[in-house]
Write a protein that binds this DNA or RNA. Structure first.
Length: 569
RNA sequence: UGGGGUAUAGUGUAAUGGUAGCACAACUGACUCUGGAUCAGUUAGUCUAGGUCCGAAUCCUAGUACCCCAGCCA
């Protein structure tokens, strides 16, 4: 099989307003034809599907225009960042199929250079050390409608500023006692321009620089410098940074250094889930899910464990487009992209989730036949396999109804159906327990229909899946549904938050399932289609003794729709 | 009440003054040894009001609605 996880093999993505800008720049030679982007996560959480949009945009543009894309950790806040997150982010971007070659960078590697530049600004009289407390800074900043006022420390002499800033770096002052601020305009209509803070004092250990630093640069000061150092051409970020662009530009102009162009796009929203790191962290910390990689989470690690393929996520990112206004994409579109990929690539296999025992009365006792089954009708090269058939079978409880309603085509008393790849069977009797539950079926088979075709040409309304009872492997299957019951989880009553909309049925564990003996030695995370049920993958909890599968997504289900319509009447 | 953004079917996205197209969803139908897949079709849209123009989603004017900004977070 070709290298399917190399995005460069995929057909070119469609144009969007950012690609238009990049194409124009290439035409005019603005960057000498170079295209260099970056994906700059802060290592303070796990990556989610929203990040995938940004990753595919940045790496995708680089791929489309024969450019480069760096992976850069924006690790300027030691209080929130951890190595665990760095590791997971590296794993996730790689899994998504992107390659940054040798360009793995950390903002913290630039701290010395950033410090030099800050000294530069102080020397130019464009930055000053401020002794205001955090509260005072807020007060002096003014409001949306009222201008701020100058800090009393704004007009300190350059020498004094230099001395104070050096001593800040040397650790002579306690946390929060001083900041370095840019000298811009306290009356500016854009609050970000009201003498923004460049450095704060933080006596905190950093996951990479240890205790070398006790002053740390703020995002606004640091980010443009990082882009400049890496000679980024197009610095792509999300909409909320639009208000920060004037500051991004101001710093670079004040320093007179290489100056990339910042372009903003709208972040991804999806129905029935949440996408902010803060909310995802809450789900993890408060135990609403079992971890960052819980298969119900929209994190890349969760989706990977759930059975999503990187190809499906990439095609989703390509199809949703890029723009500048807020939108919420229907989860159904993500699932469409998922099924589209899984349908092409997944081996089919039979599994029974809620078993109902069937005895084929006229099948010889003790006889076992090996029947041929197709591995993937979408891919003949996947070949065939043998599945054992015998007198005692399991079928799905849902595939039998004693009193079938209209349009129910499956098994019922007196009705004949086909067992996939096997025989036609007809139900003669349903055995019930004392409380009236159907516990077993007696059927007869037609030996002439071996393989599934009737020589007399008679038709059957449906084909159902089955398993030979003595040969089936038992398994646990975890069914997942939307994590939230509302399209917009934030739509909560006064005083409640998004967690009130958590779906109590987001996880259903089935412990009495059976699968084909073919699945005896499956690899973790491998993906299958359980015929007529959906796509499933081997969970990381699975062992040789106890198989565990996750339902990635169901197949489209006409019958479920009909049932829904019938019950609504 | 300041500044910065944005409005196209239910959802998402094209059309860059010249027939409003595509995808998802929904609904028909065909086909089918997965009620899967596939194929064919249907429904449905330019925020509002004026204006310019032979012609406006696109240009102009005035409104309306929504998003972002008052962290020493990113």
């Amino acid at each position: 099989m070709a290298d399917s996880n190399n995005p460069k093999n995929e057909k070119e993505t469609r144009r969007d307003f950012i690609r238009d800008i990049v194409a124009e720049d290439c035409k005019t030679g603005k960057w000498q034809g170079r295209v260099h982007t970056r994906f700059p996560p802060e290592p303070n959480g796990y990556l989610h599907i929203g990040h995938a949009k940004s990753i595919c945009l940045n790496f995708g543009i680089a791929a489309d225009f024969n450019g480069k894309c760096n992976l850069r950790f924006d690790d300027t806040n030691p209080e929130k960042e951890e190595q665990e997150y760095v590791d997971s982010i590296i794993e996730d971007v790689k899994w998504l199929g992107w390659d940054w070659e040798d360009r793995l960078y950390f903002a913290s590697d630039y701290f010395d250079q950033m410090y030099e530049w800050a000294v530069d600004l102080v020397k130019k009289g464009k930055a000053f050390v401020c002794d205001l407390t955090a509260d005072e800074v807020t007060q002096y900043r003014g409001t949306l409608t009222q201008p701020g006022k100058n800090s009393p420390y704004r007009d300190r002499g350059i020498e004094e500023n230099l001395d104070l800033f050096t001593r800040m770096k040397n650790g002579e002052f306690p946390d929060g006692s001083k900041t370095l601020r840019a000298k811009i305009d306290m009356a500016h209509a854009n609050l970000n321009m009201r003498d923004p803070i460049m450095y704060r004092i933080l006596h905190a250990g950093h996951h990479r620089t240890g205790d070398k630093w006790c002053i740390y640069p703020t995002y606004d000061w640091a980010h443009g410098l990082e882009d400049s150092i890496e000679q980024i051409t197009h610095s792509i970020c999300t909409l909320e940074f639009e208000n920060h662009r004037p500051l991004y530009d101001w710093y670079l102009d004040a320093l007179g250094i290489y100056h990339p162009r910042q372009i903003e796009f709208a972040r991804l929203n999806l129905t029935y889930t949440v996408m902010s790191k803060r909310k995802l962290l809450k789900l993890v910390q408060d135990g609403f899910v079992k971890g960052w990689n819980d298969p119900r989470m929209p994190t890349l690690s969760g989706m990977r464990r759930r059975g999503y393929s990187p190809e499906a996520i990439r095609s989703f990112c390509a199809i949703i487009g890029v723009n500048k206004f807020n939108s919420t994409i229907d989860m159904a579109l993500l699932e469409h992209c998922l099924r589209e990929d899984l349908n092409k690539t997944s081996h089919r296999v039979m599994a029974v989730l809620k078993p109902l025992k069937v005895v084929v009365d006229n099948y010889p006792q003790g006889q076992v036949e090996q029947l041929d089954a197709i591995n993937n009708p979408e891919d003949p090269s996947a070949g065939t396999r043998k599945v054992p058939f015998g007198r005692e079978l399991y079928i799905e409880q849902d595939d039998f109804m004693e009193n079938p309603p209209a349009k129910f085509y499956r098994l019922s008393p007196g009705r004949e159906v086909r067992l996939r790849y096997a025989y036609f069977i007809k139900c003669v009797n349903a055995v019930k327990d004392s409380s009236g539950n159907i516990v077993q079926l007696h059927c007869t088979y037609d030996p002439a229909t071996k393989g599934g075709d009737a020589p007399d040409g008679r038709k059957v309304k449906s084909t159902i899946h089955w398993l030979s009872a003595p040969n089936a492997l038992s398994a646990e299957v975890r069914l997942y549904n939307n994590l939230f019951t509302k399209e917009n989880p934030d739509d909560a009553p006064e005083g409640k938050d998004f967690t009130t909309n958590l779906n109590p049925k987001s996880l259903e564990v089935l412990t009495n399932c059976f699968v084909e003996p073919t699945l005896k030695d499956v690899k973790l995370l491998s993906r299958y289609q359980f015929e007529r049920l959906g796509y499933f993958c081997v969970d990381s909890d699975s062992t040789k003794d106890k198989l565990v599968f996750n339902r990635t997504v169901t197949l489209r289900d006409e019958w479920a729709k009909i049932q829904k319509q019938q019950t609504q009447r």
